[in-house]
Design a protein around this nucleic acid. Structure first.
Length: 274
DNA sequence: CGCCAGGACGCCC
DNA sequence: GGGCGTCATGGC
């Protein structure tokens, strides 16, 4: 990854990066695509941060109105620019299916998201579809000046008071997560550094957090790249392409491989049936 | 209209 | 331990 300063922007060159593939692939639900003069532009609103980012036709990236300090201290980490995805994809290409998945959407990166936001988002995701997940999270953030609410703010809510979300049976799960995180009965920072099996068990103490949601929080909210979320789509991949089991050589970064496969099976295979 | 969605829980055996 | 019905809501 190379970068330079231009006016008030940071211009980044990075070949293993595509905005649509990374910001709209089901790992994050709150990036908005907006109209601009660039090839594509997204904006993201966080508790204490805001970013507008564009991709040019040449494949460069513009971090609008961003200081070098913020870029180096926040966004390099958030977009995982210190990880060499070319090297990862090279390893993955030993496997035929993974190789196809990587070449279908080689610009996916695993974002380092906030663990609390990730926990609530993936609790909402269960037995749900992506457009509706986004809708529920939008209604939530609209209620807090367009930012994601803090644990202490959600801890005072009840399933009844959250009815405006229209999140169905998940409202009681949101409340339980907020109560446990706010009281530190669930300490997300501590969980992030536990051995992964202990971390899984801690997360699953929250009502509505089972194996799948726990893996998503570990992968997308704590950057544990060995976590491997298995949803209905990945079940299809495993049944169809890996009846003997997922290849062991990719285990350390199985979560990243999973994300290529997820995007490939959802949108790639149908377009290019083999 | 019915089927499905980045599932988990409670109950049954 | 595994199997199955149920849970809200709405996209398609």
């Amino acid at each position: 990854m190379d970068y330079c300063l231009k006016n008030n922007d940071i211009i980044v060159s990075e070949s293993d990066f595509d905005l649509d593939e990374t910001l709209d692939c089901g790992q994050a639900f709150r990036w908005k695509k907006i109209k601009s003069d660039f090839d594509c532009t997204y904006e993201g609103k966080f508790v204490n941060d805001y970013l507008k980012i564009s991709q040019t036709k040449k494949g460069e990236f513009v971090f609008h109105n961003t200081s070098e300090k913020d870029f180096l201290e926040k966004w390099v980490d958030y977009f995982d620019f210190n990880t060499n995805y070319s090297e990862l994809k090279k390893q993955f290409s030993e496997d035929e299916t993974l190789s196809k998945a990587c070449s279908f959407a080689g610009g996916i990166r695993i974002l380092k998201q906030n663990s609390w936001e990730c926990l609530i988002s993936f609790i909402i995701s269960q037995n749900n579809n992506i457009p509706r997940i986004k809708g529920i999270i939008d209604r939530l953030c609209d209620n807090y000046d367009e930012r994601f609410p803090l644990p202490e703010e959600l801890a005072v809510e009840t399933p009844d008071s959250l009815s405006y979300l229209r999140s169905g049976f998940r409202a009681k799960y949101i409340c339980d997560a907020a109560t446990k995180v706010h009281s530190k009965e669930t300490d997300l920072e501590k969980i992030a550094s536990l051995p992964i099996e202990d971390a899984r068990n801690e997360l699953k103490k929250i009502l509505g957090v089972g194996p799948k949601v726990a893996e998503c929080v570990l992968l997308f909210g704590m950057h544990r790249t060995e976590a491997f979320p298995i949803d209905v789509w990945i079940k299809r991949v495993l049944a169809e392409y890996y009846p003997e089991g997922f290849p062991a050589f990719a285990r350390e970064n199985a979560g990243i491989a999973q994300q290529y496969l997820f995007h490939y099976i959802r949108t790639g295979v149908e377009k290019n049936p083999s």
